[in-house]
């Protein structure tokens, strides 16, 4: 398994990877809580970007409604915690099948009836909107007034219940991101990974090679949805409040696909690099504007837009493919 993991990666790449990981593990000891929160955001987006990438980057199915699975994971685990005292790790075991099942419903409706491309994307948006309206009226989890997890000042980290300081959350999301990276790496090089890429490149040609496109697209949706729901559990326990209007808002769905797009759709490092670039730069921008005393609403959105535009024009395949060539590392797509 380890051999399979590192197969095809250059020595130089492995050394860089190990150094990077060591740096990320040590960093909380040297920075303040604000910076840790920024890092949490980065890895949160890296993680959901990775999960989304399985559908779009690997199997070629554009979802613009991934906030749905974040929301389902968040509400499922929060409801279990608040109403039944069930902890988040058990909550994850419930969140994955809930999100996976809805992913399967959407996938079935779309792929069985030949809905693809833009129409598929619209279908994913529609389901996310249904959820937003539905949860607005779902009193059991607070409806539009919001759903809250009990908060207190924690002096000790309670990992089992995900109650504690930012550094604990940082390690959790870092662990998620590393695990997602490894899983995606293995998936991409598996038999199924080849079939996904074939479907992404040319579905009729893939079918002519005997690939059951319906089945493999369904698997991609279910894995992607289940993985994304874990981010929702994290979201619920980190922020402690959930509003349908925010959680299921389309801007959440858009936000989470920017990192892989900037970093490189279909690549393994793209989502991580994209999240670093976007979150890092936007926070820097925030600080600079703050120092200059400029308080322009929407400055961040404009910055995001410009960033996207520059990358898409200059590096249509994303930053990572270009950077890896520059660094002499190659990632087989």
């Amino acid at each position: 398994m380890i051999a399979r993991l590192i197969e095809g990666t250059s020595r130089r790449g492995l050394v860089l990877l190990a150094l990077l990981l060591a740096f990320l593990i040590l960093i909380p000891f040297f920075v303040n809580d604000y910076l840790i929160t920024v890092l949490i955001l980065i890895f949160y987006f890296a993680f959901v970007g990775q999960a989304w990438n399985i559908m779009m980057g690997f199997a070629g199915q554009l979802s613009l409604g991934h906030a749905l699975y974040v929301g389902l994971g968040a509400y499922t685990s929060a409801a279990l915690y608040v109403h039944f005292g069930v902890g988040p790790w058990i909550g994850m075991l419930a969140a994955i099948p809930v999100a996976g099942a809805l992913g399967a419903v959407i996938g079935f409706l779309a792929f069985r009836f030949g809905v693809s491309g833009v129409y598929f994307a619209i279908l994913t948006i529609a389901f996310c909107e249904f959820a937003r309206v539905g949860f607005d009226h779902f009193r059991w989890v607070g409806g539009s007034a919001g759903f809250f997890l009990p908060v207190a000042q924690y002096s000790v980290n309670d990992l089992w219940n995900l109650r504690g300081k930012p550094s604990m959350f940082y390690y959790v999301i870092l662990g998620f991101t590393v695990a997602a990276f490894i899983i995606c790496h293995l998936l991409l090089r598996s038999r199924m990974g080849y079939f996904w890429q074939a479907i992404r490149e040319d579905e009729p040609a893939a079918r002519a090679l005997g690939i059951n496109a319906f089945r493999y697209k369904m698997i991609a949706v279910v894995i992607s949805a289940g993985m994304t729901s874990l981010a929702g559990v994290f979201f619920a326990f980190f922020y402690n409040n959930l509003f349908p209007e925010q959680v299921f808002h389309i801007s959440r769905s858009i936000e989470m696909i920017l990192a892989p797009i900037i970093g490189g759709v279909g690549t393994l490092f793209g989502p991580i690099l994209g999240a670093v670039i976007l979150t890092g730069l936007s926070e820097t921008m925030h600080e600079i504007l703050h120092l200059l005393g400029v308080d322009v609403p929407g400055a961040k959105a404009v910055f995001y837009g410009i960033c996207l535009l520059v990358v898409i024009v200059a590096l249509p395949d994303g930053v990572w493919p270009w950077l890896s060539r520059r660094l002499g590392l190659s990632e087989r797509k």
């Binding site: 890429q197 074939a198 040319d202 009729p204 040609a205 079918r207 002519a208 690939i211 059951n212």
Partner: peptide, 29 residues
């Protein structure tokens, strides 16, 4: 795909290899 699994392979008049994959990966699929 069912026809292919039964043992009929085909090419397309307008060729459609998987453009973003290497030659080797095309055949591995």
């Amino acid at each position: 795909d069912g026809v292919c699994r039964r043992g009929i392979g085909r090419t397309f008049q307008i060729v459609r290899p998987f453009p973003g994959l290497s030659v080797e990966d095309n055949v591995i699929v």
